[in-house]
């Protein structure tokens, strides 16, 4: 038990170090809060890093399609934790009638990506803290703690080398300078970037997040707890999430469930219709 607490403390220490590093290196920092378990834990860590009061803005991207429990939770804890909340909403999406029923992908793009772009521009954010984890998805396995995004919001790993001499490589690596084990992170990526994404929880797993929530007694949206033998493992927009079979109606049971489950965390997320059809074809051909 002690070794488990020590392990969680190590995870926490590293995250807090990165959060403080971000605050020191960048003038305008924001933390993204989707109200899910990861970003709420990130907020908790930010609170701990600065002794209770988060010194930067907290951004909630409001797609307009979130569960009502998410809005209730947001309103309650914005007051209780004295957050400087910014609600980012792309009003154009409503005017243009972009809905998840028409096209999930277009909807996500307009209501999440575009809303975030508008928010970064409006508040001139230099850096954003996000609660992503490496174990969530293949591409995130390759992410870094400090990760620049270019003007197109793309993750750039290299830039073309100017004034090249014979024998030089064509490119300069922008991301290979992260000496994670020594706590040394590259934070200056030059003016060609739009902003830097900072991922203080990259090294956590889903199970560790829940163990930490259990240990710290962090408040969570009730959707994660089973009702009528169903619960959500991943939450977001109501139309794009489906509950999974589960009897875990408290945090202790969730921790036990995750120790043995073989079901992926993102199983409950809906895909767009075209992708759905392609997956059916792949199943038909035996690829899945």
């Amino acid at each position: 038990m002690n070794s488990e607490i020590n392990h969680l403390r190590e995870l926490e220490n590293k995250s807090i170090y990165i959060i403080r590093e971000a605050h020191k290196k960048f003038k305008k920092v924001g933390v993204l809060w989707s109200i899910g378990k990861d970003s709420t834990t990130l907020l908790w860590l930010c609170k701990k890093a600065f002794y209770g009061k988060i010194p930067f803005k907290v951004i909630h991207i409001d797609t307009g399609y979130k569960f009502k429990e998410i809005y209730e939770f947001r309103n309650k804890y914005t007051k209780e934790w004295d957050l400087d909340l910014v609600i980012a909403k792309n009003e154009d999406a409503d005017k243009k009638g972009i809905t998840p029923e028409k096209d999930h992908f277009e909807c996500c793009n307009a209501r999440k990506t575009e809303a975030l772009k508008q928010c970064i521009k409006k508040h001139d954010f230099e850096a954003l803290l996000l609660g992503i984890r490496r174990d969530e998805h293949g591409i995130r396995d390759k992410e870094r703690y400090f990760s620049p995004r270019d003007k197109q919001f793309k993750w750039n790993i290299v830039k073309e080398k100017q004034n090249k001499q014979e024998g030089d490589s064509d490119f300069i690596a922008m991301q290979d300078t992260e000496f994670d084990a020594w706590g040394i992170y590259a934070t200056d990526f030059g003016p060609e970037n739009n902003h830097v994404r900072i991922h203080p929880m990259l090294h956590w797993t889903e199970l560790e997040i829940w163990k930490y929530i259990q240990k710290e007694n962090i408040p969570m949206v009730s959707l994660y707890l089973a009702k009528n033998k169903k619960r959500y493992r991943s939450i977001g927009c109501e139309c794009c999430c489906k509950p999974v079979d589960s009897e875990s109606d408290d945090i202790n049971k969730i921790v036990e469930e995750l120790k043995t489950t073989k079901i992926s965390e993102r199983t409950g997320r809906v895909q767009n219709k075209e992708n759905h059809d392609i997956m059916q074809k792949l199943r038909h051909l035996g690829y899945m």
């Binding site: 293949g138 993102r266 199983t267 895909q271 997956m279 792949l282």
Partner: peptide, 9 residues
Amino acid sequence: EFVVDNILQ
């Protein structure tokens, strides 16, 4: 794989 965790790559 073409699909990882039920997500098209």
